[in-house]
Amino acid sequence: MNNSKLMNPVRVILPILLGAAIYAFGLLYFIIPNELMEGGVTGITVLLNYAFGISPSLSTLVINIPLFLIGWKLLGGRQIIYTGVGIGALTFFLWLFERLIKQGWIDPFRTHSDYLLAALYAGVTLGAGLGIVFRFGGTTGGSDIIARILNRKTGWSMGQIMLAIDIIIIGSSLFYIPKEKILYTLVAVFIASKVIDFIQEGAYSARAFMIISDHANDIADIITRDMDRGVTIIPAIGAFSKQAKHMAYCVVSRQEIRTLHQIVRSVDPKAFVIINDVHDVHGEGFKVE
């Protein structure tokens, strides 16, 4: 019983530490050596490093203290604990990689021509790090706290919120960073936002079909027989015609989308079909946890 209680926090904290390490590595290995920018509070620390040579680990800790206090009031007990772990981990790994770079143990990726390559790898690395941290309920402080609060309040994805905040802050750095570096940075930020959503929402993506047809039952029978997928028949009424109809609701994998399209067209070419993205599907025929 006690071991089980201890293991749950460990299973959360260890991935947060891993994500913070990946993020810190990407910042010091790809971003700063190529004089690119980053969004959020991290972008401020990068600018302070460029302008005054202030250590990113030091400025990250100092700036995050008041934001951590705000998060303490708004994000709840366990959430703020994981936020504190994220802030502490990011500060530590920034400090660690700074020392390893200064001592020559790590040779950062520097380029004078292929900034697109640096931006691509920076986006993947930073996005992977933050995505892991977010997926396990933590943040690395800074705008991550703001993003998580807005995610709860508005339902917008973490990646979308981070992208908006990053664009605002990066745009304000035009007075110092050359425009071409800003454009490369936007590439990195965009890729990072997509990687964040990919990791947080799950690598497995399915599609939900809503099929409105006078032959919905026939379509459902063929889907069940030929595809071995469950279908839910939902009664509906046409707002214009006032006639009773049926809607077939079915979730399939990406590989089965074309097959389902063909079934619908073969039974009722006039069927009205709505397709939505679905993430983290659980149940029979899909992943089980």
Rank of each mutant, 00 (worst) to 15 (best):
I149W: 05
Y184C: 12
T140A: 15
V251R: 01
I223M: 07
L61G: 04
R110L: 14
T111Q: 08
I199L: 14
E180N: 14
M247N: 09
T224C: 11
I167F: 15
I16R: 00
S172D: 04
I106V: 13
T125I: 14
Y121Q: 00
I182W: 04
A122S: 10
T91W: 00
I182H: 07
L100S: 06
I274R: 10
L27M: 05
S113G: 13
E180K: 10
L18R: 06
W95F: 14
L47Y: 06
D277R: 11
N2E: 13
T42V: 15
V252Q: 04
L90G: 02
P269I: 01
G283I: 00
L126Q: 08
L130A: 14
N34F: 02
G84L: 05
N276I: 07
G137D: 04
T259G: 14
T91Q: 06
A128V: 12
E35C: 13
G86P: 09
S57H: 10
L90N: 06
I165Q: 05
F92Q: 01
M162K: 11
E289Q: 01
I31C: 12
S205L: 15
I16M: 08
A21K: 01
D218N: 09
G142I: 01
L47E: 04
V189L: 12
A188R: 02
L69S: 13
D226T: 03
I212K: 09
D226E: 14
D144P: 04
G129V: 10
V264P: 03
